[in-house]
Amino acid sequence: MKLQHNLGGLEGLDPITPEIEVFVEPWEKRIFGIHTAMMALSNHLDESIPDYDIEGVPTTFKSFWTWGHLRMGAEGMHPFEYFRLRYYEKWLGGISGFFVSEGYITQEELDARTAEFLEDSEKAEAPLPSGGEKAIDDQVVKYLREGDSPMRPLPAPPKFSLGERVRIKNVFPAAHSRLPGNLKGCVAEVVKVYEGAFTYFFPTADGIGVPMPVYSLAFKPEDLWDESLIEPQSIYYNDIFEVYIEAV
């Protein structure tokens, strides 16, 4: 069981820290930009709905990279590390590890250059290398504008219908999941059957990644938590992939 899949309802936590900044350190912007470029250059975009000539983009990046890849890294971490590290620290670890494991860079050259910047403040403050193929950046902007809609034709009619009571399956989430663990076994009402089917691009062991219906489900607090823990006058909604749902 991964703690990262089971955050919902965790007790004993602190008051909220209402930090409204998107980035609390300038370096965080850089890793966000790198991740977004990887999303925009991912080899799976040759099958996307927008017409991307992804094979023709003059980047050396030829890998498959989606949110699923980034999230699987965070979900696979030692849980105490997950909570020790700030949001973009997790990204930095996962993304640099990916570039090493895919062979774009070696751990040795990354470590050596990091050490160089730490030892020599002039080098650390020097401008980044310039240049490169402009068509790479054109694809990045095109991706931001046109996106990567996961909507696909329905492979089969939705199994559940509006107003129906359903139960969340007790699936084993494996390395990556889009099912909050605290919902397993809970009963909910279908309040919307989304039009079409949705892929997740990234195939997970628990069954998402192929087109399937998605439902908006409404959970009553008494169906989620012990009576002693619930707040009256509240409803929890979540959009759930069909593979996680069964009939009551």
């Binding site: 850089r30 930009g33 790198i34 050396t60 990046f61 980044l128 310039s130 240049g131 490169g132 950046d137």
Partner: peptide, 11 residues
Amino acid sequence: GVITGDTVDTV
């Protein structure tokens, strides 16, 4: 050649 010198700033 994975990204350019302008990619991150473009994003």
